[in-house]
Design a protein around this nucleic acid. Structure first.
Length: 389
DNA sequence: AAATCCGACAACCGCATCGGA
DNA sequence: TTCCGATGCGGTTGTCGGATT
């Protein structure tokens, strides 16, 4: 435990006026929750309901603070918590809402049923801010947000469109594991005091067979695979998301030909479409979907030369400008985002070597390189983020 | 094979706000 | 009006497993 925490604990203890409080503080458990603790908490809430967390902490037999109990419940045990990777729709929504509200995680979370503010916050910090760090720009800067809009968001839109047309959403995005609500665990839970580290359990591919002894994975991540029975808060389907103009309405993507890569036809001509389609298929095969860049492939640099990816970026951003106009109108309530991306992206090809790491490095992800190159270019233009607040 | 690094996320902390006495 | 406990929010840290060296 860190010195900071140790000091804070000590300070809390010494500031306590009563020996009882001191004793209680000394006995307080911290760190990962055990199965038994989860069991206790769920049982208590099942009987008494949520709220009055300090009372709960005192009466439930848990040696935890009310705060800790509340957090455990809200972020982990609550029945409608949705587990698993964020869908492209959700990622897009987060990017857009964050552009409007900033770090108002709880407010953003309200628009993503089943997702917690903590989860969204972590997503932002681990995925989005990572990109910003690599670019050496502030994640809240206009430059970075433009880059997100011109590269990232179109990618997510493509992914969404591809997913909606090529797959059953539920088959693609939902873990097929049978639903098992935490409350189901209460009765049949095996006695165990071993620490639980959910972050590692659920990092496993939900679609893969759970390894032996990983039953808690299913206990942790109750998902209702049936659209007909899913509730708004518990569903993972895109349809369950609140109606957000543009982003959640995939229909216009198809309607306007903004489905997977088709819009490049108008912008780059037939010659560009061919190689582009090849790349898109390959990109798809790698699982590159916006920020969720797939694992680095040993031959990825061979498959996707910078030139081809930059063509892709040029196409995407040029189209993205148009798309952003639509986005700005839909989401921002009428503000129009000018097509700055197409121009800004015009010379990206020359900048990859300048800004990116050597492409011979297998650990370097070409997508990131292109993303950063695009962001650098955008830095020359300093366009303001278009989504109205 | 071992050591180290890194990504991801659960959990904790401090502060702000709310609401009742 | 003030006090105080409960709750909510956002920032930060600790820990783990996997990837890399």
């Amino acid at each position: 435990m860190s010195q900071r925490k140790g000091a804070s604990m000590a300070a809390a203890v010494t500031s306590s006026k009563h020996h009882e409080d001191q004793e209680m503080m000394m006995e307080l458990r911290r760190g990962p929750w055990t199965l038994e603790e989860d069991n206790l908490l769920m049982n208590y809430i099942a009987c008494h309901g949520e709220g009055r967390w300090n009372l709960l902490a005192r009466c439930s037999g848990l040696k935890r603070t009310g705060k800790s109990c509340r957090l455990r419940w809200l972020n982990y045990l609550k029945p409608d918590i949705k587990r698993g990777n964020l869908t492209p729709e959700e990622q897009l929504l987060i990017l857009e809402l964050h552009s409007k509200w900033g770090n108002r995680w709880s407010r953003i979370a309200q628009h993503l049923p089943g997702r917690t503010d903590n989860e969204i916050k972590n997503y932002w910090r681990t995925r989005v801010q990572k990109q910003a760090r690599q670019l050496r720009v502030d994640a809240n800067s206009a430059v970075f947000r433009d880059a997100v809009r011109c590269y990232w968001m179109p990618r997510l839109l493509e992914k969404m469109a591809a997913t909606s047309t090529a797959h059953d959403l539920h088959g693609e995005l939902l873990p097929p594991a049978p639903p098992l609500h935490p409350s189901h665990v209460v009765a049949g839970m095996a006695s165990s005091s071993s620490p639980i580290h959910g972050s590692h359990d659920h990092e496993q591919d939900p679609t893969s067979n759970a390894p032996a002894g990983s039953g808690y994975y299913h206990q942790r991540y109750p998902v209702d695979p049936s659209p007909s029975t899913s509730t708004t808060s518990g569903s993972t389907s895109a349809a369950a998301l609140p109606p957000v103009p543009c982003f959640s309405e995939l229909s216009w993507v198809d309607q306007y030909g903004y489905g997977p890569y088709s819009y490049t036809t108008d912008l780059d001509g037939a010659a560009g479409v061919s190689s582009f389609d090849d790349d898109s298929a390959a990109l798809e095969s790698l699982g590159l979907d916006g920020l969720d860049l797939g694992p680095a492939e040993a031959d990825s640099d061979v498959l996707y030369s910078d030139t081809t990816l930059l063509d892709y970026l040029n196409s995407t951003c040029a189209g993205g400008g148009t798309m952003m106009t639509m986005m700005g109108g839909g989401v921002g309530g009428g503000s129009v985002v000018h097509n700055s991306c197409g121009g800004a992206m015009g010379g990206c090809g020359d900048d990859v070597a300048e800004y990116g790491r050597p492409t011979s490095s297998s650990s370097w992800r070409t997508d990131e390189l292109v993303f950063q190159a695009s962001a650098r270019k955008l830095g020359d233009h300093q366009h303001q983020w278009g989504g109205g607040i």
